[in-house]
Write a protein that binds this DNA or RNA. Structure first.
Lengths: 507, 507
DNA sequence: CACTAGGGCTAGGGTTAA
DNA sequence: TTTAACCCTAGCCCTAGT
């Protein structure tokens, strides 16, 4: 994939509430060596956001703030007060937590943290060549306190009283809100807004993956998740449903190859880049005055980056790995992947214009909308969801649900799906009470021969929904009761089958 | 290295404040396939201790507590109140922290955690067949609160105020102290004390790694780090100096091969094992009365063990190796093959002349007997009464806030144990709990609210052998007679249980 | 009522095949 | 490699018969 395009996509994804797993996959497919400072910062912010919403404010967060400060410094972006406060709060939290765990052992892990963070990081910060913008008087005051606690029990007791974690959460949140606002909308969002304003109807592929509303009547949705709530926003709803996310990831990755931006890039690229400078760049790099197209020297910037693989992105990658994100894919060399990928894309583009876009059923399958099936497990008191599962949430696209449970459907048995995807007429199965399976025939002749496996029969959505209803009614574990009550649906399923299926459905 | 010896060494290391890296190395060098339940529990306790002193109380800790409970259950060790409280506090912490991070996004990671922990773990815990000793009314009340916070902003705000982490730290610490004390000194420590008392001058090699004082003038140092401070004790001082630790590891591993216990094993092993029975095992496995007989078949037990390597211990080993002590692997296959591991060691140590029977110490330690701490709660404070002390807004539905986390109720929660070995919630409280969720209603009209099954308890080899002896003596079919004659062994088995087990053994 | 025999059930680990 | 569907079985429950 073209480096510019892949970076645009990555940038877009980073700023919006797509699941982390998608970010991970994209990262592994996109060459990062040429990332510009804006993208790096976006990556770091995104990571911090994830850490925050995972309630995991550790020294990794400290590291990230330092890296961001470095980038800002290079771009002549001044360190804000909120950033300093966030850094301080996180540093305090990363130290005090050990005291909270073992108040009577300040000499243990707590002291180690003081050395690591306050004698290490913070001291380096104020000494050396340049004084970090993160350094503050507040920091110094805290250091005195924290050092004192190592030997002064009274200070120690006072510190233990703190809820340093909540404080850190709060400060990080404030900083994130400010930072996302400061960095502005993504390039693709800007393009979308512009082209729409010009009546282009130019769609950046956000419909299936990024925006559930298709963007048709929402002109400012380019910013729709950068409002500060983004830090702990909608994306989290999906966390209980990782499998589903993974599936979507695959789909959306494919989709990225088909971004209209890429298809039209030979024609529009120069033009778009031109606009890019005046919209995104202008907002991202406030310290740079843009007077003309030629002054930015994009070529030079890129090449510089290419020869110097950015250490900080590497670090972020490590951080991402160590955090709860599933970023194992990143271990591999992203460049190798990118090369392969670009080959695929190139040949694909050169050939016919095959559309791999999502099916209609997925058009509204936005990642931010939780699977309604998940919420109908019967034990969900979500007031917005009908517990009986009989009436689907009107806000949820019906096409996501393969089967709409209703009384009529529950009673009638429209078809029996065999393993080879062939729909058998109902009649056959109806009378086949005793002859459901092939091995029935061989029961009489071979006495000790191991029973052949039952033929694999895929579960229909009717069966699934009925099972759900059954668990709702009888409770999990009462498989015999469920089987009996819905005996017409489960005619050729055993109680164990029901149990196994439920186990699968709960995974 | 001889399996016994290596296990003794490992056990010793686990209980003392050696650095984790040493534990990890030892684990990888020691065959764990024959690990008994006591060693497994020690391993888990050690892991929990590390998590605690790293101020990292996550769902891993929850998992560990569940695994320990599982082991205790099979060993007929009753769940203590402190363990229940620790579990509850950790569960609350693992949920509330998301709320603390993003108070205005209860629908995000917080809700996911509620589903994962409270609708998942906790619900499974009370469900049929698996009622865990960790289940408590306190847990139920918290669940109500935490569920309410998903949609009730006011509950949400109240929960955010909690310092759930500190609470969890504290409860885990209390539990750890109790658990280390309950598990007694390590075998090597016992041996050391004994041999010293006999004037042997027997040194267990602790001088270089384990005990800096050489142990010469400290007769009770077998317990020197099990005093509650051990949880965040000396080991932490080493954490800032990993390289040095690694060097020590090598040295100490070598040293282990030179343990006097091993050198003299051919001579003393039988003797030591005999003592082991009466000291360590007697304290660890209170359920065993050792009088000496002939009915055991140690060879068979051993071979069975060796072919069934303990999966969970292996997983713990892996987890320990990864620095962060992540135990996600433990999610799978918790104690599938907890088998009769504890019995195995017993039979092995005892050789052929061992008789099994419950010790005096266990007469009240049966799973059927409620925890004495719980029992002493003669009068049960009605939570609804306590609630009045908070003077809530009269406009607030009280049923939504059934429990004030900070009030005295948090301390002790009564249980009512039903005749069928199942711990039932106090009916009064049951009724007082608001029917907040719709699925409660669906449970009402379910045909039979079948009482939960008895918790599955694996048969120990002691029980098996006793059953065999019983059938020998009284003949098959006289289950009541057998049960009566070996009533101390079969205290919590019914005649039908014996019959069923025999049927299984004859297959 | 107490007990036993025997069928049935569930949970959970394992296996197979797509 | 993954995993949905299926298999195996220990331990527990239910009921008829004595």
């Amino acid at each position: 994939m073209d480096p510019d395009v892949s970076r645009w996509v990555l940038e877009f994804l980073l700023r919006n509430s797509v699941p982390d797993s998608l970010i991970a996959k994209t990262l592994s497919a996109v060459p990062l060596s040429g990332a510009d400072s804006s993208l790096k910062k976006t990556l770091l912010l995104r990571t911090l956001r994830t850490l925050h919403s995972n309630a995991s404010i550790t020294e990794t967060a400290l590291e990230i703030l330092e890296l961001i400060e470095e980038i800002d410094c290079n771009d002549a972006v001044p360190v804000t007060d909120s950033m300093r406060r966030a850094f301080c709060a996180v540093a305090v939290e990363c130290t005090v937590k050990y005291l909270a765990a073992c108040p009577d052992d300040a000499a243990g892990n707590y002291f180690a943290a003081v050395r690591r963070i306050w004698r290490g990081r913070v001291t380096r910060m104020e000494s050396a060549g340049r004084r970090s913008g993160l350094f503050s008087e507040e920091l110094v005051r805290w250091r005195d306190d924290l050092e004192a606690a190592v030997w002064d029990t009274r200070v120690c007791e006072r510190l233990v009283q703190l809820n340093s974690r909540t404080e850190a959460f709060s400060e990080v949140k404030v900083y994130l809100k400010e930072a996302w606002e400061g960095i502005g909308p993504s390039f693709l969002d800007s393009v979308e807004v512009m082209t729409k304003a010009k009546g282009f109807g130019f769609d950046v592929g956000g419909e299936s993956v990024m925006n559930s509303d298709g963007g048709d009547n929402d002109n400012d949705n380019g910013n729709h998740n950068n409002d500060g709530h983004g830090a702990c926003g909608v994306e989290n709803e999906n966390q209980g449903n990782e499998k589903e996310l993974e599936q979507r990831v695959g789909a959306s990755i494919d989709l990225n190859h088909q971004l209209p931006a890429e298809k039209e890039k030979e024609i529009q690229k120069g033009n778009l880049q031109h606009r890019f400078k005046h919209t995104v760049l202008h907002r991202c790099h406030k310290g740079v005055k843009l007077t003309g197209t030629e002054e930015v020297e994009p070529a030079k910037s890129w090449s510089k980056c290419d020869t110097v693989p950015s250490a900080e992105v590497k670090k972020v990658r490590e951080s991402l790995k160590s955090s709860s994100l599933e970023l194992q894919a990143l271990v591999k060399d992203p460049l190798a992947d990118a090369l392969q990928m670009s080959e695929v894309v190139r040949s694909n583009l050169a050939g016919k214009d095959i559309n791999h876009g999502p099916s209609i059923g997925n058009q509204n399958g936005d990642v931010d909308v939780p699977d309604p099936n998940v919420d109908q497990n019967g034990d969900v008191p979500d007031p917005n969801v009908d517990q009986n599962g009989d009436v689907p949430d009107p806000n949820v696209c019906n096409s996501i649900v393969p089967f709409q449970p209703n009384d009529a459907n529950l009673v009638k048995k429209p078809f029996v799906r065999c393993s080879n995807n062939v729909c058998c007429p109902n009649l056959l199965e109806r009378k086949a009470t005793a002859r459901t399976y092939e091995w029935d025939d061989s029961l009489d002749n071979s006495p000790q021969q191991a029973q052949p496996r039952k033929r694999k029969r895929k579960w229909t959505s009717l069966e699934e929904e009925t099972l759900r209803a059954g668990v709702n009614k009888f409770g999990e574990g009462n498989w015999a009761a469920i089987r009996g009550f819905y005996s017409d649906v489960f005619e050729n399923r055993s109680g164990v089958d029901l149990k196994d299926k439920w186990r699968n459905m709960m995974r």
